[in-house]
């Protein structure tokens, strides 16, 4: 299955200054890295994700230098652990998000107090993924991505703040000058809408 996917992708010839990946090709590129350790595919992923992860990590209040260093560390994990990427569990953007998120939590923890490095759950190898599971997870992630983008502006904003900023509900409320209950209900409505778009029943 990986082979078939890999054949469909043509790697860029030259990547002195790599061109960022097209968001729709992230999965194909990561699978190329996973199966053939393709450096040019990785360079395109690096050019797309490193500046975004750096931007994401700067939200915990670290300096640009430290954020850059941590973004390097995140991409290093992507490169070294690519073989453990399981397309039946997540799409590329989702997997890389969990790596960056865990790194952010660890970095904030280290800043507070040194602790043991727990095994990162983003790298738990399991059985060989089945093609139908891969298809299902990938199309589910794709639907979630589309549903997120289609959220009404007010809901889109709180969801984005919740996932990207280092801000719990109370801080989002403060920042947007909204009552805490409004922030929570907007998040709830947003998640219900995403679930509805997925075709799941809302409980």
């Amino acid at each position: 299955m990986f082979g078939a996917l890999a054949r469909r992708v043509t790697a860029p010839r030259q990547a002195a200054k790599a061109v960022p990946a097209d968001p729709d090709r992230l999965n194909d590129l990561l699978l190329l890295v996973a199966t053939t350790a393709d450096r040019e595919a990785f360079n395109a992923l690096f050019a797309f994700f490193a500046p975004r992860i750096k931007g994401y990590l700067m939200r915990i209040g670290t300096s640009a230098d430290l954020a850059e260093d941590l973004a390097q560390e995140a991409l290093l994990k992507v490169w070294r652990k690519a073989k453990l990427f399981d397309p039946a569990k997540a799409s590329a953007a989702t997997w890389i998000f969990t790596i960056a998120r865990n790194l952010r939590i660890d970095a904030a923890r280290r800043a507070a107090k040194p602790v043991l490095d727990a095994e990162d759950p983003a790298f738990t190898p399991e059985s060989e993924p089945r093609a139908d599971e891969v298809m299902e997870r990938q199309s589910r992630d794709e639907k979630i991505r589309a549903a997120f983008k289609a959220l009404p502006a007010a809901q889109y904003e709180v969801v984005r703040l919740h996932f990207i900023e280092d801000a719990p509900h109370s801080e989002i409320a403060e920042r947007l000058n909204l009552p805490l209950g409004t922030v929570k209900s907007r998040l709830r409505l947003a998640f219900e809408k995403i679930r509805k778009d997925l075709g799941d029943s809302v409980e």
């Binding site: 968001p23 994700f49 490193a50 500046p51 975004r52 992860i53 750096k54 931007g55 994401y56 700067m58 640009a64 954020a67 850059e68 973004a71 569990k89 997540a90 799409s91 590329a92 953007a93 989702t94 997997w95 890389i96 998000f97 969990t98 960056a100 998120r101 997870r137 589910r140 992630d141 979630i144 991505r145 997120f148 983008k149 969801v159 984005r160 996932f163 990207i164 998640f191 995403i194 679930r195 997925l198």
Partner: peptide, 19 residues
């Protein structure tokens, strides 16, 4: 896993900070 997919979609929208 679904919420992490929302996180993945959000990561794509982060303002890039040039390396």
């Amino acid at each position: 896993a679904d919420f992490e997919a929302v996180g993945g979609a959000c990561l794509e929208t982060v303002e890039p900070a040039a390396m």
